[in-house]
């Protein structure tokens, strides 16, 4: 038996629905249709009345989730694409993220954002929104890179008493498989050493972890041992694990699929510079997507986002600094 990243997300939701009567799912086409990506396939039938189709109203979808959370429920919201969370942005950052701080009433909602690029998806179905949400106090932002994390972190997101932005990567939906679902898991908020190494650190998250691992494999044949840190959650950021890795290697490249201005990679570099400056043998480097909207054509798209090849080039450059 094998299970994909997407199936793990479906299974986590099924388990959350089965174990907690406060959980319900609300989003566009999530009901009998099973969701645009089939992440809720069969759940409406299995849990009658608890998997609800919503009108195309991202603002009202999130607002209703906040209201339901106030009343003690634990809603899971599916945004059809992360890109479409922008019409609901106000409710996320001004309503959900401020509720606990203002009133001491927690807001346990999970907002699933099918994120990131797949070939041919274009400017409005490919975006990575994690940095935008991580900017705001009151939100937890998860970016699982493995099937195991997709499963266990989604279950943890539902159990957490705060609003969680769950950035699941569409490129990983079908590409990643594992043999079985995990029975125990590393807690959210902790980064993971995806591959140990002594020469250079690559900090990555979500789909970029796999590009980094591919680059590390190639570099290994050249005698360069790369340590890959998978952030797992970008907020909170596990600075300790990052700094500890930099202490081992002295060189760091931070890779993200999002746009280059600001964002997660800039935040990581800022923390390394302020907390680990003395550990560095070379200036910390960043690699992001290009500073344009995400292109449609596969030729352009594959050059727009970081890949194993561009990571390879960036590491080689870093080793020369």
């Amino acid at each position: 038996m094998s299970i994909t990243y997407l199936e793990a997300i479906r299974e986590a939701q099924a388990r959350a629905l089965a174990e907690d009567p406060r959980v319900f799912i609300y989003g566009q086409d999530v009901g009998d249709f099973g969701g645009a990506f089939k992440a809720t396939k069969g759940l409406a039938k299995e849990f009658p009345g608890r998997v609800l189709d919503a009108p195309i109203s991202e603002d009202a979808i999130v607002g209703a989730a906040v209201g339901a959370a106030i009343e003690g429920m634990r809603p899971i919201i599916e945004m059809q694409f992360a890109d479409f969370s922008t019409p609901g942005f106000n409710q996320v950052i001004n309503q959900a993220a401020t509720l606990y701080w203002r009133t001491q009433v927690p807001c346990p909602i999970t907002i699933r954002l099918p994120s990131g690029g797949t070939s041919g998806s274009g400017p409005f179905h490919s975006q990575c929104m994690e940095a935008i949400y991580a900017h705001y106090p009151g939100l937890i932002v998860m970016t699982p890179a493995t099937v195991e994390d997709a499963y266990s972190m989604l279950l943890e997101a539902v159990a957490i008493d705060d609003p969680v932005i769950f950035c699941e990567h569409k490129y990983l939906y079908y590409h990643l498989k594992t043999d079985r679902l995990p029975t125990e898991a590393m807690p959210a908020g902790k980064a993971r050493i995806a591959r140990p190494g002594r020469d250079v650190t690559i900090v990555a998250y979500s789909a970029m972890v796999h590009e980094a691992l591919a680059a590390a494999e190639e570099l290994s044949t050249e005698g360069v041992e790369v340590e890959v840190v998978d952030l797992r959650t970008v907020k909170p950021l596990d600075t300790d694990t990052i700094i500890a890795s930099v202490a081992r290697t002295g060189r760091v490249l931070v890779v993200g699929e999002a746009f280059p201005w600001g964002g997660v990679t800039a935040e990581v570099v800022a923390r390394i510079a302020t907390e680990g400056f003395g550990l560095l043998d070379a200036p910390p480097q960043r690699l992001n997507a290009k500073d344009t909207p995400i292109p449609y054509h596969p030729n352009l798209w594959s050059a727009h986002r970081p890949t194993a090849n561009s990571i390879l080039a960036a590491v080689r450059n870093l080793l020369r600094l």
Partner: peptide
């Protein structure tokens, strides 16, 4: 932000219906 409370009230009412 004007209008933002309407869907929140809706959500409370949906939750009460669930219960």
């Amino acid at each position: 932000h004007l209008g933002a409370m309407i869907s929140v009230v809706n959500g409370v009412l949906m939750a009460k219906r669930f219960k």
